[in-house]
Nucleic acid binder design. Structure first.
Lengths: 117, 117
DNA sequence: TAACTAAGAAATTCTTAGCCC
DNA sequence: GGGCTAAGAATTTCTTAGTTA
């Protein structure tokens, strides 16, 4: 049940994408889709956030009708979900961590501009 | 979170009552209320059925005062200019660079969570 | 009686490594 | 690359027995 719904929701994303977002290994996420193990409550919450559905839907308590809404929403989104959830996370992170990351960003930028000159 | 909600919902019932309905031991249900362990998905479903609430409610995704939504909105309004321009830049950057940065982000997160555990 | 907890047993999950397509 | 799985390590849960109020 939950496996089918995850598969459907994931759509064009790779399992790797979702796993990275969740901060778990690829195979762990694979287990969820194949129902070899089930996500704990925290992971369940994250999955619902990422796919923008209810946990009731993920757990099979709600029918299909809500799915279409979500699909439409995803398809019309301009920011890729992975980047979007990354932004959400970063916004809520401690300032110290934000600043550190922006420093890394500056390094990445300058490295790439050197390569291309 | 889930513990508080279970306690509230149980109301006049004893833990024994609920445990019997779920077909589990008394102390196991007690652990759920005290958040020493968390119900698996099947038990979560049964609990939602018994109390006639959504799993989203049990997991704290819906609430009395809908704190999550308010919080998100508030924080969205308060994106510091530095972070905002960083987002703009990142959105338009090559995927390769985006992915590299997100990897750095994962490292930062895990470093900080180690410190705080 | 009702609820909570310690501690170890029991069960599940998670990761790595390797496999297939 | 993308997804799946075996197997053991790691973690969590679950039960019993005992404690508290």
């Amino acid at each position: 049940m939950i496996g089918d719904r995850l598969k459907k929701l994931r759509d064009k994303h790779t399992q790797e994408d979702i796993a990275q977002y969740l901060g778990i290994s690829r195979s762990r996420y694979s287990h969820y889709e194949n129902e070899r193990s089930e996500p704990d409550n925290k992971t369940l919450n994250k999955l619902a956030d990422f796919f923008d559905v209810s946990t009731d839907y993920l757990l099979g308590r709600e029918g299909e009708c809500d799915t279409k809404k979500n699909k439409t929403k995803h398809q019309t989104e301009l920011i890729p979900p992975l980047l979007d959830s990354f932004f959400q996370e970063l916004k809520e992170a401690p300032k110290e961590q934000q600043e550190l990351l922006i420093k890394f960003w500056d390094i990445i930028k300058s490295e790439y501009s050197i390569k291309n000159n």
